[in-house]
Amino acid sequence: MTDRDSGSDEPADLSEEGDTPASDGGVPAGIDEDELYEIVHDAVEDAILGVVGTLLLLGIGFVFLTAGVSAALGAMSTAAFGIGLTVFVVGLVIFVTTLRGVLPMSEWV
């Protein structure tokens, strides 16, 4: 039975494979600094673009919502009221679907 099969909670002796234990007791991932920088850079860039996209969609939805409400309230005919209501519903759909991706209802409770 080897050290790896002993079933103990202690980390096995890794010196024979050339890996040195990390400070947390694990084994280093083997990624150099340039690769790590590129991964972190891409992740941060994706996060920033996601935030900007979400804010833009919320802004567009809010514009549609307010335009639809003002058009529906100021309507002089049934057709104008229908157009205002349609614009309001489009804005509501954009706003709600954007928020649903950001804040699922299950996490609100």
Rank of each mutant, 00 (worst) to 15 (best):
D9H: 00
V40W: 00
L103W: 08
A47N: 09
P28F: 04
F62I: 15
L73F: 07
G30E: 01
E45W: 11
L36P: 00
G26F: 11
M76D: 11
D13Y: 01
V44M: 03
I48D: 07
G91L: 05
E45L: 05
A75Q: 13
G53A: 04
V93T: 14
I94M: 15
T66L: 15
T78P: 05
H41K: 14
D24V: 09
L103M: 13
L99C: 12
V40C: 00
E107Q: 14
V102S: 11
D24W: 06
F64L: 10
I83Q: 07
L92P: 06
H41R: 12
L85R: 05
T66Y: 08
L73C: 09
F88Q: 13
V44K: 03
L65V: 02
L56C: 10
A67P: 11
L58F: 15
D19Y: 05
A22N: 10
P104T: 04
G18S: 05
I60T: 14
T98F: 11
L58P: 12
F81Y: 06
P11I: 01
T66S: 13
L103I: 05
G68V: 00
L99I: 02
V89D: 01
D32V: 00
G74C: 02
G68Q: 01
G91N: 15
G101P: 09
G25C: 02
S77P: 03
V96P: 01
R100F: 10
V90T: 06
P104W: 06
L99S: 07
G25D: 09
G59Y: 06
V96W: 13
L55T: 11
F64K: 09
L57P: 02
V52Q: 13
L85K: 09
G50K: 01
E45V: 08
D34T: 11
T97A: 04
L65M: 02
E16A: 12
L49F: 10
G91R: 07
I94W: 14
T20P: 03
L14W: 02
G25E: 03
L56N: 12
D9K: 00
V40L: 06
D9T: 00
L85N: 04
P28Q: 09
E107Y: 06
L56I: 08
L14G: 04
H41Y: 15
A79E: 08
T86P: 05
A22G: 06
V96Y: 06
H41C: 08
G50V: 00
I94R: 08
F88H: 10
G84I: 05
A71Q: 15
Y37C: 09
T97M: 13
M76R: 14
E17W: 14
S70C: 03
G59P: 08
V52I: 15
G26W: 13
M105G: 02
L65P: 02
G30Y: 03
F95I: 08
V93R: 00
V51W: 15
V52Y: 08
G61Y: 05
T86M: 11
F62E: 12
V96C: 05
I94K: 07
F81Q: 04
S77I: 01
D19N: 12
D42P: 05
D42W: 12
V52F: 14
G18N: 09
G53V: 12
H41G: 02
G74Q: 13
A29Y: 11
E33F: 01
D24Y: 07
I31N: 15
V44R: 15
D46Q: 08
V44G: 01
F62T: 15
I31K: 09
E10W: 01
G30T: 02
S23L: 13
A12L: 01
G59M: 12
L55C: 03
F95R: 08
L55Y: 12
E10T: 10
A71H: 12
E17F: 13
